[in-house]
Structures are given as structure tokens and as C-alpha cells.
Amino acid sequence: MRSRIVDALLDHLRTHGQPPESVEAFCRAHGWSEDDFRAHFASLSEAEALYWDNFLRWVVEAVEGGAEWEEFNARQRLLSLLFAFIEAVQDEKALVRARLNSALHPLLRPDYLAPFEARFRAFATRLAERGVVTQEIASRGPLNQFYPGAFALHLHSVLAFHLRDDSAENQRTDAFIEKSTNLLFEILREQAFDAAFDLARFLLVPAAGPSEARSGQQAPAAP
């Protein structure tokens, strides 16, 4: 029943590009009672989440189970994952376009992608640890916690590029994965990451001094 529910939901998503209006409507359309559904999932999101989590799990397990995985450095591991991921996307392009690509945006984070994200972060954390061991990535103490986020952003950029890529055999996607991964590792290894972090902190953390001065100037103008 569990897999029948997920399959039916995916069919709906493939056809309509968005989930059914409610669990009730969904169940009615398939001749199930809502209790049947609730026995397996608390919500439609939870059912969809299972699919995306499995989607990534298969990709990760496939690459981590590869004969040469243990010998790969972090860069090779990330490249393998991205190539395998794009290969998996191939079969479900419409679904990925509708439900994964737009939702991977860091500001959206819908519920149905939470397990997917958690699984990717776990992978990215292992990847960063590997990179520190192989000295491909500088260890920056507490800042290391930002690495998985950087890898997640990169994954999203690869996916976004791929969905627009109309080159023969998606050769441009392959080149993009290759070049952007090289750049990412250059950034994580070199000073650039530190400089970027320094700039980001400067821009994001409100500076007390000038804003006080400004409000001071505004004071006389306000009656």
C-alpha cells in the first residue's frame, strides 16, 4: 500500500506538476479511505519526501558502492556523485523540473525535501571530512559547518544548468560539472573562501557605528 500511494502521488505530480489539493481529494480519486492513507503517511508531503529521499539514497549508494570509491579523493567523489545524480535525473526530467529544481532554492526548503536535504548534508559532511584528510580542503574549525551548505548550493547550480542544457548528449552539463567542481575546490582550498567569508560577515552583520550616526542625523529632521 505504501508504495502504491507513492506511485499514485508521483503519477499525479508528473501529470499536474503539483500535488493534489488535499489528502481527501487524493484518496477519493483512487478509491481509498483517508484512514488507509493515514496509516502510512501523515501528509502528502511525507509521502513525496519518501520518494526524493530514496532518489538520492540510490544515487549515493551506487557511487559509494563503486569499486574504486575508497581510493577516490573528495573531488573525485563529488564528481562521481554529480555525474550519477544527473544520470538519475535523466529518467525523471519533468518531475525533477517541477518538484526538485525550484524547491532546492536555499530560501524555500519545502517539507517534502527535508529528508533529501538531510541525506545530502550527511553525504557532504563525509565529503568535507575526506577533503580535509586528503588536504584538498582547508580545515577552518567552526567554519567547516558551512561546507555542506556550499556543496548543496553547488548541487543546485548543476541541476539548474542541466535542466536548461540542450547540447548533444548533455555534454555541456558534463563540462559544467567538471569546471564548476574544480572551481569549488579551488575556493575551498585557497584563501578565496576566507576572503569571501570575511566580506560576507562585513556585509551581513549590521555595523553599529554608522547606523547610529545616521539616526542621530535624522533626529533633528523629525519634528
Binding site: F72, R75, Q76, L79, S80, F83, D174, I177, E178
Partner: peptide, 8 residues
């Protein structure tokens, strides 16, 4: 080309 790209 990275080795994973060769494999790909």
C-alpha cells in the same frame, strides 16, 4: 578530464 568524467 577528471577520472569520474572519463568514466562518465
Amino acid at each position: 578530464l577528471s577520472y569520474p568524467l572519463v568514466v562518465r
